[in-house]
């Protein structure tokens, strides 16, 4: 995979996501850990503690903790999200690293989901949510057109998570940039003249036409 400068590989978003704070239940004793993000711990067996995801996963790999899943990763919550996503045209507000965290937890902490069936249905729901959102995003970008005042059409990208945007970012910015070059906004020449409150500057026009000014000056000469 070769990357153009400016592209961010998807794996890097996973890396960013590892700073998300999760709750773990450790089964070891550790003193307070002083990190740039703050202090974590002290850790005592069976006492829940907040830690960054990367640390939780490192402990998990050594079977030193169990991870408490974020509330949005339950089957009920995901079902609700999926329904809302299907119902509304706008994108649901998801946690910033929704897909990355879910992906990591499903991969490395599968036993914390309870039984295999739960994990499986969570996987299915996540895939559905992703597909629905992807289809919506595609529809949004297909609607793009340039109007008199610039880009029209893409109005509802709010709520997309960074990793979803990254899938299409370079293509979309490049294409829309090209489209804007090919069809410059028509209001470039006919900008609505700003009208200032009359009381402030008297009856003087706020915008002086350059040619009119030149003509006046020439007449005076």
């Amino acid at each position: 995979m070769s990357f153009v400068p400016g592209d961010i590989p998807t794996a890097e978003y996973e890396f960013f996501a590892e700073n998300t704070i999760v709750m773990i239940v450790p089964n070891l004793t550790l003193p307070v850990l002083e990190m740039i993000h703050g202090n974590f711990g002290p850790f005592r067996p069976l006492i829940p503690e907040r830690v960054p995801l990367w640390f939780a996963l490192a402990l998990k790999k050594r079977q030193r903790c169990s991870i408490q899943l974020p509330s949005w990763l339950g089957v009920d919550e995901l079902t609700k999200t999926l329904e809302a996503e299907r119902r509304n045209e706008r994108f649901e507000d998801l946690p910033q690293h929704f897909f990355e965290v879910a992906h990591l937890l499903l991969e490395l902490a599968r036993d914390d989901f309870g039984d295999a069936r739960t994990a499986h249905s969570v996987e299915g729901l996540l895939a559905d949510i992703e597909d629905v959102r992807h289809a919506k995003m595609r529809a949004q970008f297909a609607r793009v057109e340039l109007g008199a005042h610039g880009l029209l059409g893409v109005t509802r990208l709010r709520g997309l998570t960074p990793i979803e945007i990254n899938r299409i970012r370079t293509f979309a910015t490049g294409s829309l940039g090209m489209l804007k070059r090919l069809r410059p906004a028509e209001d470039a020449q006919t900008q609505p003249t700003q009208t200032l409150p009359a009381g402030l500057y008297g009856q003087q026009p706020a915008f002086v036409d350059d040619r009119a000014l030149q003509a006046t000056l020439q007449r005076r000469r």
Partner: peptide, 11 residues
């Protein structure tokens, strides 16, 4: 670039 981004995600 569009295809590369998409493939990277799938990968």
């Amino acid at each position: 670039t569009g295809l590369a981004g998409q493939r990277d995600y799938q990968r």
